[in-house]
Structures are given as structure tokens and as C-alpha cells.
Design a protein around this nucleic acid. Structure first.
Lengths: 125, 125
DNA sequence: AGGCCTACTTACCTCCAGGTGAGTACCTGA
DNA sequence: TCAGGTACTCACCTGGAGGTAAGTAGGCCT
């Protein structure tokens, strides 16, 4: 997975899209922002059990650079930063929908477990 | 990218699909097999400029394990091995289509270069 | 005789994605 | 007074993805 910037040259469209989605948590961030519309940093962290603060910020910054995510800082104390999907983020998420469907079908097929999260936010496997 | 086996637990369908597609060359192998139907090992290698033999085999074996690729050995001399997509490989490729479309649009948007291959097979950037 | 084709296998190495844990600056509630 | 919440930043480390190069075994071409 390339967290480092590539931005081409690409072999094809899939290559270009994968370059943007590659990263352990990016598709999940996309999904989380899609489901909740707008989320604060700590909300995202809690929504993605297991993510480290460093990676979450790194991914968010890259997705902002790639024009997928909008970052809005409210100058308050305590600090408040809100993340949401841009138009391109929304369309990427839509493009990922069919892939998600295929993946869900695969989970069913191979009988893989799903990560579930309990009320406290701890990961159960 | 996980070349190592995960096969769950997964957060969601996208996670499960990404697990299977993750790997520098996997989506390109999928595309190549989709375009040509059946390809021999050396044909794939030539079709993916820059891939190493080790990675190509590794990816093909994993995709075979994941039920995406069918491997057929013809006991001949010289050896002849043919790779093709299974039903699941075909459906995954179909699910990747919308992502590919998004990526193509992104390439256009940011004006990234595409890798082109000349007749001899050398990569031009 | 020597090189090239087929499809691999094996050993070794590098680099970086991602994890860990601490530090920052400010405010709130117990 | 001190823990805890806000949103980060920084330094360090490890595991594994992926690259490089050589070896294998049989047959064909020159």
C-alpha cells in the first residue's frame, strides 16, 4: 500500500483509483464519513477500532490532498475539527459500492468472521 | 498490501474485497486475464512490464487460492501453463469496473500520465 | 557446444507502511 | 490538584511487501 505520493503514471483507471484507496484504513474512513456525513477526529478514531492516531491523521491528510475529504477547523477551545466527504469522495464511495457488495458475498462464501465492536469500543474477534 | 493471508475477520465487504485485490499487480493481472481470456505465464509477464517473476507467481498462486484464477498445466515439453479467470474472478472484475471508471476520470482530472508500452515491451514514462 | 525457450524455486536484501509511546497546549470537571 | 478530553506532532522500531539474481531441468535451434 502506498501511503507515499504516487499520483501516476498509471497503468489504467483501477491503478489510479487503488493508489488513492490504498492504505489500511482509507476505505473504512470513506465508509465512516459516508455513513455519518460529518465526523470529528476523535469520533473517527472511535469508529475505527485499532487505528493509531498517527495513521488516522496521515490518511486524512492524504485524502484531503487527493481531494476526497474536506477538513474544517473551528477555532474554539477545546479544538474542533470536522471531516466530511467532498464531491469526489462521495463519487469514489459510490464506485466502491459494487466492490463492497462483491466482498460481502465473498465473506458469506468463505464464511469469514466480521469484526464486531462492543459498546465500549473494544474489538472482539 | 497484504500478500500474506488474512481471510478475515473483516470490517466490511470493501475490506474483504481489498484483501483479495491488494498486491501491486493483482488488479492488473485481473485486467490482463479479462482482456485476453487465457494467458500463459510468459505472456502475462510480458503484458505487465516491470513485474518480477517471483511476484507474478506469488500473486497468481494467491489468486488461485482465493478462487479468482484457474491454473491449467499441460504436461508437455516445453512446459505450458495456462491461466484464466474463474467465475469469481470475472465477477470481481465486473465489480472493479466502476472503480476503474472513477480512476480514469481522476487521471483526466489531475492530468496524470499513463504508462505506455512500446512494441519491444520496454516501459516509457 | 552453447545459448535460449518453457515455468518456475530459492536465498538474500532493501525500504517503507504502519505501530508504539511520549510530548504539546489549553480547558473542564471532580 | 490532577485526571481527562480536544487535536494533533515527533522519534523510534519492526515486519513484511516486493525487488534482484541465480539455479533447475528438459528440449530446440544454430
Amino acid at each position: 500500500m502506498a501511503t507515499s505520493a504516487r499520483r501516476g503514471p498509471y497503468f489504467c483507471g483501477i491503478d489510479a483509483a487503488m493508489d488513492v484507496v490504498a492504505g489500511k484504513w482509507k476505505s473504512l474512513i470513506l465508509w465512516e464519513l459516508h455513513n455519518h456525513g460529518t465526523r470529528r477526529f476523535a469520533e473517527l478514531r472511535r469508529g475505527l477500532p485499532g487505528v493509531s492516531e498517527k495513521m488516522l491523521i496521515q490518511h486524512l491528510r492524504e485524502m484531503e490532498e487527493d481531494g476526497l475529504v474536506h477538513r474544517e477547523v473551528h477555532r474554539e477551545v477545546p479544538p474542533k475539527v470536522e471531516y466530511s466527504l467532498t464531491e469526489h469522495g462521495v463519487s469514489l464511495n459510490a464506485a466502491l459500492a459494487s466492490l463492497g457488495k462483491w466482498g460481502t458475498e465473498r465473506i458469506r462464501r468463505i464464511g469469514a468472521e466480521k469484526v464486531s465492536v462492543d459498546v465500549a469500543g473494544a474489538v472482539l474477534r
